[in-house]
Amino acid sequence: MSFYEKLMKLDRRWVYLTVAIAVVIPVLVPFKVPVYVTPEAKAVYDFVENTQPGEIIFLAIDYDPNAMAELQPMARVIMRQVFSRNIRLIICALSQNGPGMAEQLISQISKEYNKKNGVDYVYLGYKPYPGITILAMGQNFRIPFPTDYYNTPVDSLPMMDGLRNYDDVKGIISIEAGNVAEYWINYANGRYKAKVFFGVTGVMTADYYPFLQSGQLSGLLGGLKGASEYERLAKQEGVATEGMSIQTVAHLVVIAFIVLGNVGYFMSKRYKGKEKG
């Protein structure tokens, strides 16, 4: 068996081990890599920066704990920027396993900035059937959410005074890990013409660029890279920035394996052809 044939039959566990080592080393020996900020990420940042204190932004935390790694850094840095600028937030969580996780994040960040529930932010929580919920919120937030996450009637919350639907918020920043994203485009933007910004997982990013180009989305953060861009813009280096150096090393290893696999494939094919000839 030639070297290249052996390469083709390499046990995949060696690949896992190499990637694991490539990830662990930069964690133990940290270093920094430059982060290039894309215009679509800057659009989200500028939107928050240009919102005046006291105005309201709608934040949708529509992901489950399995997408926390990529999306929690985005949600965290956006909430910190919003609260530091005294902008008010109305928040929902339309992914079925996410409301508890979202609540933990909200209470942690609101404590950091001394923000009060019902005054500086309202957490509406979860309702099933995200499409119908988003559509109903376009008429009135009170239709799907007569009470907030903590079971308080929303009409008793001072912040909800005069706040009816998407017309009363500056825009929607939706952090997404599933098909809820398409409802925000279709219903919130398509039906109610709300300004929508997305923060999505890496897997989803390529799917949403066409909507950015068509103007249906006003800004886009893609995966951990998007979160690191935002952290850089907001000057709040966190997990995403720390992750970029590790990501770089891991990507180099993956590229090396792709090159090695292709070399092995073509060379073993050539070797076989020579043996037959």
Partner: peptide
């Protein structure tokens, strides 16, 4: 799409490794 998927999957691994650290 594949490149971004790899990035996403590596991000999940990074999160776990940072958590363990």
């Amino acid at each position: 799409g594949f490149g971004l998927t790899v990035m996403g999957r590596v991000s999940l691994l990074i999160d776990r490794v940072i958590f363990l650290k």
